[in-house]
Computed example of a mutant assay.
Amino acid sequence: MIAVVAERRRLLIDSCRLQCADEQRRFALEDHESRYLRRVLRLRPDDQVDVVDGCGHLWTARLLEDHRLELCSGIEAASQQVGAPSPKLGLAIAVIRRGMDDVMRMACELGVDQLQPIHCQRCVPQAEHRPDRWRSIVQEAVEQCERLWAPELSELRAVDDWWEAPDGSDLRLIAVTRAAEITPLSVLLADQASADQSIWLAIGPEGGWSDRELAAAAAAGWVPVSLGGTILRSSTAAVAGITSLTNWRTLRC
């Protein structure tokens, strides 16, 4: 007979707030968290919820009457603890007019560790830039997909300032189209000897990279890769690329 474990929803709480819990391991909920637990999940006092800090730890907590949570164990005695994913996977994506919300959500669900929105020459003026909404989407995705490590979402940067930003030891890949003799991402990953160095994948805007941007990327050590034989929308390319990277990491680890 197979035992069925009842689902218990998760709440992502910043580790600083958890560290500031009182002697009874209690801390106050913010208004939106209280509404979520009581009105959306319909939890009642004494019901339990799992709390994660986005840094590899999970605790069981109990909902109290006065809009607070009480950890069922000490902060030093997490119910679950896992190390950070290795190697780290980063996605740098040009802001686009439609689809950024989906990219943020799906990249988080698939396991990306760093998210870097970038502004490129051919980004349209109507391109979405909603960092507060993206942070909310990422938080909800972490809770929904049961990750213990939350991805880092960085502020928007101009691509000209971005090429040199990743560590020089990172494997830095840039997705390109309509270029002859470009190595497919899957082939490059199959030949990747090390599973330790971080990997970045850069996805351009719907209008594609400019010649100046491609030259700057090449000068900074970015390696061009192909994501397939068809032309993909930026949002599709981001999901396809991250899927290949996370599948590779799963098989290598």
Score class of each variant (00 low, 15 high):
188 L>W: 02
205 P>Q: 08
136 S>V: 06
96 I>P: 01
250 T>V: 00
95 V>T: 10
153 L>S: 03
124 V>I: 07
69 L>P: 12
241 G>I: 08
209 W>H: 07
199 I>S: 01
208 G>S: 02
22 D>A: 07
225 V>H: 00
36 Y>M: 08
114 Q>G: 00
47 D>S: 12
106 M>A: 03
36 Y>E: 12
63 L>K: 07
143 E>T: 13
99 G>W: 02
29 L>S: 01
53 D>N: 15
66 D>L: 09
165 A>V: 15
41 L>Q: 03
170 D>W: 15
233 R>C: 15
69 L>W: 01
182 I>A: 06
11 L>A: 05
176 V>R: 00
86 S>K: 09
47 D>E: 14
64 L>A: 14
196 D>T: 14
36 Y>H: 13
73 S>L: 02
168 G>N: 15
213 E>C: 10
165 A>E: 14
109 E>Q: 07
171 L>K: 11
72 C>G: 11
80 Q>A: 06
2 I>T: 02
241 G>H: 12
131 P>D: 10
100 M>P: 03
161 D>V: 02
17 R>E: 09
53 D>K: 07
143 E>V: 06
35 R>E: 09
252 R>Y: 12
128 E>P: 03
42 R>T: 05
95 V>G: 02
183 T>H: 07
166 P>V: 03
164 E>V: 15
169 S>G: 14
48 Q>M: 07
177 T>F: 00
76 E>N: 15
42 R>A: 01
113 D>T: 13
86 S>A: 12
250 T>D: 11
99 G>Q: 12
120 C>L: 04
214 L>R: 04
65 E>K: 11
193 A>V: 14
38 R>W: 05
69 L>S: 10
162 W>A: 00
131 P>F: 06
94 A>P: 04
